[in-house]
Amino acid sequence: MSVRSDAAEGARAIGPFMLGVVPFGLITGISAIDAGFGAVQTVAMSVVIFAGASQLALIELVGDSAPVAVVVVTAAVVNLRYLMYSASIAPYFRDFSPPWKWLSAYALTDQSYAVAVTEFRDDDPGIGRRRWYYLGAALSLWAVWVVSTAVGVVVGGSVPPGLSLEFAVPLTFLALLVPSLKDQLSGLVGVVAGGVAVPAAALPLDLGLVAAALTGLTVGVLVDTFTDWPADERSGEMEGDA
């Protein structure tokens, strides 16, 4: 198949995810301006970091005037999941040249990972299709992300404060959280991390999120190591219907 049709197919496959990305980008743009980021800076952040959850966490901490080190460490912890995607998708990128590896890795997101791995696992396509299908999906998501952040920057000032739009941020995280809780061990980790996060919010330096996430992870690893909980059989289907 041609480069163009492979790329177009990838873009089509990731299409349904855009419905979630657009409000996420808008909220990122709006809240970054609120927290004191410049307009250019906010759009640049979406290009340089290109990871919504960590950007929102970072923006919130900057708004709270948390210490710089805490802001950076928190965002880094939120993005630890990219290690998982990187590990899981690496076999499909192994025969790419170094520039392709860098570009493909840069464009790796929850969505492009889900779309590509589902496709590649089933079909085992050749290198050309893997490159272009993936890039078609990943870069169209990138474009929508950057543009919707920019739109958020522009409309931000005109949103009436009474709408409590800031609550859309935890709702976005909730929408990502719930599907990730579908096996027993993840459920336990989520309950522990969420439970610890409430009292941990009182920790100095805004360290609550990092402390809660690491506590949840530690409990998960200990339970996994010392008990016979069933391995989390990823029930086969990816979250492709989002």
Binding site: V77, L80, L83, A87, S186, G194, G216, L217, G220, V221
Partner: peptide, 24 residues
């Protein structure tokens, strides 16, 4: 390593969501 990384989204996202809804 893989099993640990699989637990990261649940841990991080729960720690982001819950304090936005209930506080102490």
């Amino acid at each position: 390593v893989e099993r640990t990384l699989e637990l990261v989204p649940a841990a991080v996202l729960a720690a982001l969501v819950v304090p936005a809804v209930v506080a102490l």
